[in-house]
Simulated assay, not measured.
Amino acid sequence: MTQHVWGYLPEYEKERADILDAVDTVFGSGQLVLGKSVRSFEEEFAAYNGVAHCVGVDNGTNAIVLGLRALGIGPGDEVITVSNTAAPTVIAINAVGAVPVFVDIDPDTYLMDVGQVVAAITPRTRCLLPVHLYGQCVDMAPLKALAAEHGLVVLEDCAQAHGARHHGRIAGSMGDAAAFSFYPTKVLGAYGDGGATVSDDPAVDARLRRLRFYGMEDRYYVVETPGYNSRLDEVQAEILRRKLTRLDGYIERRRAIAARYAEAFAGTGIVTPKLAPGNDHVYYVYVVRHPRRDELIEALKAHDIHLNISYPWPVHEQEGFAHLGYAPDDLPVTSRVAKEIFSLPMYASLSDAEQERVIEKVLDVAGRL
């Protein structure tokens, strides 16, 4: 299980006719930049997420960058988030000149420990940035209560949580704005880069639309505020439109795969994901733990099973963020978990036979460690 470990090739074979028709539709439309496909996808994705507005952008990192700027976050402002995340979450904070402030994670779900947030708030704090990691949501009610009490904005990082729900609310509908990635591996993935920022606030929506198009409003070359060239590609938007109609099916299949893993590894040394109260998980990745993770992963390579780690190096331990001044022990749960977690194959096109082989080999190898 190497090249198609995240399911691109099997998915493409199954959906090839529709994907190529999407490409032909755009090329034949005469609208290659911010045309009908982008507008339609924005409307449809906003409706799916129960929000009023969606702005398609070029990637998930810039979805966060533009989201922060549209919410008024800039140089010197502090943004509270987690270190157990993909580096782009923090890179985006840095890109707007803000300062990332980390809190530790829950040892069972690996999500933001909301109970630690209040102690991290300072007079410079302006934003809370929860990461709905691995496919399930952070506990949003107490986080939003803190935001309201301290006059902070909330930007949800939903890059890994398309379709996830928290007490019935869909990811992306609970903050002041939310950022999504459509990188090919995502639950809703494009065939290249792509992203979107959503909001219920028309003023935030208007700022986002200016920011993604150089800072211009209606007239070309008239810049109202310096922005970016950060437009969702028309071809990717049309592909995403088609795939959006299949998103719930992708999620259903992922949950079935997760259930089989949970049953197979119950009572073993493999610690399976814990579902937080009120959450409907979409299993973007299926993250498990084992105290001898590195040995287990290395042994499985002999069976052509190559597993990923999400994430082996917490952001606060990486050289590029040394200037933030964190030591590993400052976030003890994050640092400890990073030494044990790894991801089993998880994608909608994973076959039952492929999964059974993974389960068999993991149990065999783990049983001999």
Results as ranks from 00 to 15, higher is better:
I93H: 04
V79L: 05
V79T: 11
I93P: 12
I91G: 00
V99A: 01
G74S: 12
P100N: 12
P75H: 10
G97N: 11
N84Q: 10
T81A: 02
A95E: 11
G74H: 07
P107V: 13
S83R: 01
V101H: 07
F102C: 13
E78F: 04
A86P: 14
D106M: 08
P75W: 02
V79G: 10
T89Q: 03
E78C: 05
D108N: 15
A98P: 15
A92M: 00
V96T: 12
N84I: 04
I91N: 01
G97P: 15
I80L: 07
F102I: 12
G76I: 06
I105P: 14
V96I: 09
A95S: 14
I80V: 14
V90E: 00
P100A: 08
G76Y: 06
G97L: 09
D104P: 15
G97V: 10
P88Q: 01
D104H: 12
G74W: 02
V82A: 02
S83T: 09
N84D: 06
P75L: 05
D104T: 11
F102W: 05
I80Q: 04
T85F: 01
D106L: 13
T81G: 06
I80C: 05
D77M: 09
V101C: 13
V96K: 09
P100R: 08
E78D: 05
P100C: 13
V101W: 05
F102M: 07
P75Q: 07
V79A: 08
T85Y: 00
A87D: 14
A86V: 04
E78W: 07
P88N: 09
V90Y: 00
P100K: 11
E78K: 05
V82L: 08
D104N: 13
A95P: 10
G97F: 11
P88K: 00
E78A: 03
A98I: 06
P107D: 14
V82Y: 02
V82N: 03
A87M: 03
T81Y: 04
P100S: 10
N84T: 10
P100Y: 05
I105H: 03
D77V: 03
D108I: 02
A86S: 15
D104V: 11
A95Q: 13
D77R: 06
N94K: 14
D104A: 09
I105T: 13
V103Q: 06
V96N: 11
V99E: 12
A98F: 06
I80K: 08
E78I: 02
G74Q: 05
E78G: 04
G76L: 05
P88M: 01
V90C: 02
T89P: 04
V79I: 10
T85C: 15
D108M: 07
D77P: 14
V82D: 03
V79H: 06
G97Q: 06
G97K: 13
V82P: 13
E78Q: 14
I105E: 04
I93T: 13
D104R: 10
V101R: 15
I105L: 10
P107F: 10
P100Q: 11
V79M: 07
A98V: 09
I91T: 08
D104S: 10
V103E: 03
P88W: 00
P75F: 03
E78N: 07
I93A: 04
G74L: 04
V79W: 03
V101D: 08
V90M: 00
V99G: 03
G76S: 06
I93F: 02
E78H: 12
T89K: 00
D108V: 09
T81M: 01
I91L: 00
D104C: 12
A92E: 00
V103F: 02
N84M: 14
I93C: 07
A92D: 00
V99L: 08
